[in-house]
Simulated scan of single mutants.
Amino acid sequence: MLNLEKKGWQAMRPSYRSLCVFSAIFWAVAAGAFAQPPVAIAPRASTVPKNEVLPKANIRVDSNLVLIPVTVTDPLNRFVTGLDKENFKVLEDKKEQAISQFSSEDAPLSVGVIFDCSGSMGHKLEKSRLAVSQFFKTANPEDEFFLVQFSDSAELVQPFTGNLEEIQNRLTFTQSKGRTALLDAIYLGLHEMKKAKNPRKALLVISDGGDNNSRYTEPEIKNLVKEADVQIYAIGIYEAMAARGRTPEEAAGQGLLTEIAEQTGGRQYPVDNLNELPDVAAKIGVELRNQYVLGYSPLNKEHDGKYRHVVVKLVQPRGMPTLRPFWKQGYYAPAQ
């Protein structure tokens, strides 16, 4: 069960080049695109010499290298791969930084599934389970996963494992009941992620509304999210705005998940049609496999423990439509 004894969190920082620029369509979210077959991703062939060691994506206090994962999409929300280092600019506190490391390979992931089984999920549970199954189809053998379920409280029901069947078996017996301790579940997921063996980390949150039963507050969780080197993706299964019995917390759920996710470089995907759930989950899995990682040594060498704001800009390739980047918006500098 969730240990609500609050603990200090150490600030952590966010974590070859293609011959030509091309736009790879892994999933289209334009109208009607969800009818496509499920996505299955084959790992890219490594182009790194055996004796070369890539930098890890987690930044510790004794490191002066900041690594920022970046997703790039086109106007149809399709992922764009094949960009070069010269297509990116990184600014920290409004000062441009020199990009010294650049990668776009499919690295192993540590992922926590945060699964809502509160009373309002009822008829949504079956499609939510299927969504997790589709997300797992994009997994690689080196990946690891854990499962947190939440209703009145949050519970770690499956610690880190490479056996996906263990998590799916746990979900099979999930029952819908109780209220929604969403913030406590995110806290528990961030805490469990400290045990991750892979440098790239992400949480996948599947929920149908806001929080109404957590002991942790929104400001507390937002601060923890800033400090943690974890991307958060969320699938929000929302009732219609005019739906009867929709509580203020449920109405605020979309904004809450969007703010938390985008702060980490992830995204929140709203779902109105339950049949879209599995495809959206697969799309998130594909996105995690197709990110760029930009590394730089900050011009500001001060170890002052302050929050540094990061902005990623694109140098638009010729002949391409306007592209949009998504990235983790900042990190805390080391305190000593």
Rank of each mutant, 00 (worst) to 15 (best):
P37I: 07
Q268A: 15
R17L: 09
V66S: 10
G319L: 00
L65D: 07
E302H: 01
G266P: 12
G32M: 03
Y332L: 02
N273F: 07
E144T: 02
I68T: 15
S23Q: 14
Y296W: 03
E302P: 00
R200C: 04
N169A: 11
G189L: 02
E144P: 04
D143S: 10
S151W: 00
D106A: 07
R318V: 03
N212W: 09
Q101D: 15
S63R: 06
R17T: 10
N213H: 14
Y292P: 06
W27A: 04
P14N: 15
A11K: 13
F160Y: 08
I232L: 11
A281C: 05
Y332W: 07
Q134Y: 09
P55H: 04
P248Y: 08
L76K: 15
E262C: 03
R244H: 02
N64K: 11
G245D: 10
K89E: 14
W9Y: 06
F173D: 13
I237C: 08
S118C: 04
N163I: 08
L65K: 11
M12D: 08
N169T: 12
K7G: 03
A28M: 07
A234V: 06
T247H: 07
P49K: 00
L4V: 10
I206K: 13
S133N: 04
G330I: 02
Q268T: 07
G253L: 03
P321R: 03
Y233R: 03
R308F: 00
T81S: 07
P38T: 10
R44I: 00
S18V: 05
M121L: 10
Q36P: 03
P321M: 01
P75I: 11
L91Y: 15
A281S: 12
P55M: 06
V312S: 09
F173C: 04
N300C: 06
N300L: 11
W327C: 05
M241R: 11
Y238S: 13
F160G: 09
E52V: 11
Y238F: 08
G236M: 14
H303G: 02
A154D: 15
Y233T: 05
Q134W: 01
E52S: 03
L182P: 12
G119F: 02
I235G: 00
G266H: 13
Q149C: 13
I235C: 09
S120N: 07
S100H: 05
A333N: 02
S128G: 14
A335C: 04
S153V: 04
Y269W: 09
Y16N: 14
L109E: 10
V21T: 15
L188R: 09
G255I: 00
A185G: 10
D184V: 00
Y296F: 11
I221L: 14
S297G: 04
